[in-house]
């Protein structure tokens, strides 16, 4: 077999009910769904994926819970014994969605960017979205689903990090993941609000280890910056499964991750004209990733002892900035440029 199994489909809804100022995918805002895949087409996608080894589907966006067939899709994935993963703003989680999800062991992430409405709304914009997200978490927890909270760190909420960690813990979340906001999509207009690489490293190092047995605090920071203790626990290790993942946009476009929504250079075809198998097995970009990661990574990744672990982190982000998937991680590259990349992690 000259192709790897396809383990996960990242299914992106191109539509959203919020208009967050840091969103990298730049979805439409409450738009009509003309041209979007029908549920029958999504069923066919899942079936084709299973023939390639599919084990799970991650629903994201935009807002995945806006998909007109979201309830049927959740039921389908569960009935097919596929792992259900959902990354949502939480505002549309209702008792019915929570109940359907509770029939399996899903992984649900909900965005919460502050411990109260005022801070949360700095990114989310939409009044009321904080309380709706909190209610969404509570509905899941009542069904014994402990979601992960995702917190996007920026200048306006960094002082609220500890309070949001406490809130997430008190709400019954299983973990909180603290994200760096990359210079992509709408975040490009956040100049002055996005943290620098150095600021993010400093906050990670000063925040310290706050995980406990039943609640994890996870910084989305490259392993090169993590303490040995953190590396041993593997809590902060985000191993990119890019070699076993394909992105599908809700209009049927196939893409490396979801990047095809903002960078047409990484569109691989459309399910209405290409079979999933033909793209997965023969597309030149997919094959290039398969053959060259991580050995051919450039930049500081070439010398980093963790390149096999993180695979250059988000190569889609790198492509969007440099035009090459293999130029090396931008966060680490910037850290190296300013002298903050740990020498002991270079080989």
């Amino acid at each position: 077999m000259d192709h790897l199994p396809l383990r996960t489909i990242y299914f992106y809804n191109k539509n959203c009910n919020l208009r967050c100022c840091h969103c990298w995918i730049v979805p439409g805002f409450n738009e009509e769904t003309e041209g979007e895949m029908t549920f029958a087409e999504v069923c066919e996608l899942i079936s084709q994926g299973q023939e390639l080894g599919l084990k799970g589907v991650k629903l994201l966006g935009g807002e995945p819970l806006l998909l007109p067939y979201i309830r049927e899709l959740i039921d389908l994935l569960i009935s097919e014994r596929l792992k259900v993963m959902i990354e949502t703003n939480g505002t549309l989680v209702d008792d019915d969605i929570a109940g359907r999800l509770a029939a399996s062991d899903p992984f649900v992430s909900i965005s919460l960017d502050g411990s109260h409405e005022q801070i949360h709304s700095l990114l989310r914009g939409s009044p009321g979205s904080f309380h709706e997200a909190v209610a969404g978490i509570q509905k899941l927890v009542r069904r014994n689903i402990r979601p992960q909270v995702i917190f996007c760190l920026h200048a306006g909420n960094k002082a609220d990090l500890a309070a949001t960690v406490a809130l997430a813990r008190n709400l019954g979340a299983s973990s909180i993941k603290i994200n760096f906001i990359s210079d992509m999509g709408r975040a490009q207009d956040m100049e002055g609000e996005r943290l620098s690489v150095q600021e993010f490293i400093d906050i990670y190092q000063s925040f310290g280890e706050k995980s406990s047995d039943d609640f994890k605090v996870v910084f989305d920071i490259p392993p090169a910056f993590q303490s040995v203790v953190s590396l041993a626990r593997k809590e902060n290790l985000r191993v990119c499964g890019i070699k076993n993942i394909i992105g599908v946009l809700s209009n049927g476009d196939l893409s490396i991750c979801g990047i095809g929504n903002i960078d047409k250079g990484l569109l691989l075809g459309n399910l209405r004209t290409h079979s999933l198998a033909s793209v997965w097995k023969y597309d030149k970009t997919v094959r290039m990733i398969r053959e060259n990661l991580p050995e051919k990574l450039g930049g500081v990744c070439r010398r980093c002892m963790f390149k096999k672990t993180c695979m250059g982190r988000c190569i889609a982000n790198t492509y969007h900035s440099t035009g090459s998937l293999l130029d090396g991680d931008l966060f680490c590259g910037e850290a190296y440029r300013i002298g903050s990349f740990p020498e002991t992690r270079l080989i």
């Binding site: 303490s227 040995v228 203790v229 590396l231 041993a232 002892m305 002991t344 992690r345």
Partner: peptide, 8 residues
């Protein structure tokens, strides 16, 4: 590689 809290 020796580190402050162990080694790699």
């Amino acid at each position: 590689r020796a580190e402050a809290d162990g080694a790699l």
